[in-house]
Simulated assay, not measured.
Amino acid sequence: MQTLVLIPGLGSDGAVWRRTVAALGSRVECLIGDTHSDDTLAGMARRILDQAPERFALAGVSMGGMVALELMRLAPERITQLALIDTNALPDTLGRKMYRLLANLVVGRTRNFRRQAERSLALLVHPNAPDDVRAELVEMSVRVGARAYVRQNRAVLARGDLREVLPGIRAPTSVIVGQDDRMTPVSLSREIHRLTPGSTLHVIPGCGHLPPVEKPEAVAALLSELLQRS
């Protein structure tokens, strides 16, 4: 049985992958990468490498995709297949850096993080995302908490240009993105696809920034297809 390591995004935990894991069923052994114990993307990547088997498939969503690229930088020989989902290999623009700093300031001072989590849904999911998905995401954000959000946002803010990793990737790679992602638009995934040799690009219609929870059956099908490539 293949092992698939799944990396959550910023402010997320394994719940963001729960529906996709259920859709994969018993076909694959799924492990959730720890992104809550380190202050840098590289530190997260090293911890995941320490916890993972010698060889494994890898999928990361949003910030998790950035961590996945750090793993590809550190130990490409250990990764058999790679999925990069709604992520961004570019460094932040000045405007995006200012946005992250402001977000950290607001979150660090808020006394009602749940309300902040509810407000963020407009950027995270498609307008037609069902209520149970929205409720699940809010509960996940509250559970992970404001401190983890701020710490992870600083790690993302400090990243370099991850595009330099892409041309050297030799593992079969799927680039997956929600068609209506407002946080990391399709153009960013097209850039990753263009720079990654032999990669495939999949745009999921009617989906926002979090396909693993918004469209788990579609993501599971794409991951199953990827795992058959060698």
Results as ranks from 00 to 15, higher is better:
residue 52 A to T: 08
residue 55 R to Q: 14
residue 55 R to W: 04
residue 59 A to K: 07
residue 59 A to W: 12
residue 59 A to M: 09
residue 60 G to E: 09
residue 60 G to K: 11
residue 61 V to S: 06
residue 61 V to P: 01
residue 61 V to E: 10
residue 62 S to D: 08
residue 62 S to E: 06
residue 63 M to F: 14
residue 65 G to D: 09
residue 66 M to D: 04
residue 66 M to P: 01
residue 67 V to A: 03
residue 68 A to S: 15
residue 69 L to F: 09
residue 69 L to V: 09
residue 69 L to K: 05
residue 69 L to A: 11
residue 69 L to N: 10
residue 71 L to C: 14
residue 71 L to N: 06
residue 74 L to S: 06
residue 74 L to Q: 12
residue 76 P to T: 12
residue 76 P to F: 14
residue 77 E to S: 06
residue 80 T to K: 07
residue 84 L to V: 09
residue 85 I to G: 06
residue 85 I to M: 05
residue 86 D to W: 08
residue 86 D to M: 08
residue 88 N to H: 13
residue 88 N to E: 11
residue 89 A to N: 08
residue 89 A to T: 11
residue 89 A to K: 10
residue 90 L to W: 05
residue 91 P to N: 13
residue 92 D to F: 12
residue 93 T to L: 04
residue 94 L to H: 10
residue 95 G to E: 15
residue 95 G to V: 04
residue 96 R to S: 13
residue 96 R to K: 11
residue 97 K to M: 14
residue 97 K to P: 03
residue 99 Y to D: 15
residue 99 Y to F: 15
residue 100 R to A: 09
residue 101 L to N: 06
residue 101 L to G: 02
residue 102 L to E: 13
residue 102 L to Q: 14
residue 104 N to G: 14
residue 104 N to K: 07
residue 105 L to W: 03
residue 106 V to C: 01
residue 106 V to L: 12
residue 107 V to S: 05
residue 108 G to Y: 00
residue 109 R to S: 10
residue 110 T to N: 10
residue 110 T to C: 08
residue 110 T to P: 10
residue 111 R to A: 11
residue 111 R to M: 02
residue 112 N to V: 04
residue 113 F to D: 02
residue 114 R to M: 00
residue 115 R to F: 02
residue 115 R to N: 06
residue 116 Q to L: 14
residue 116 Q to H: 07
residue 119 R to D: 00
residue 119 R to W: 04
residue 120 S to T: 09
residue 123 L to I: 01
residue 124 L to D: 12
residue 124 L to F: 13
residue 125 V to F: 10
residue 125 V to R: 03
residue 126 H to E: 12
residue 127 P to I: 12
residue 130 P to L: 02
residue 130 P to S: 07
residue 131 D to W: 00
residue 133 V to Q: 02
residue 133 V to W: 05
residue 134 R to C: 15
residue 134 R to Y: 12
residue 135 A to H: 01
residue 136 E to V: 01
residue 138 V to W: 06
residue 138 V to E: 03
residue 142 V to D: 00
residue 145 G to Q: 04
residue 145 G to L: 05
residue 146 A to W: 01
residue 146 A to T: 02
residue 146 A to S: 14
residue 147 R to K: 13
residue 148 A to S: 12
residue 149 Y to M: 04
residue 149 Y to P: 01
residue 149 Y to F: 15
residue 150 V to D: 00
residue 151 R to I: 07
residue 151 R to Y: 06
residue 151 R to N: 09
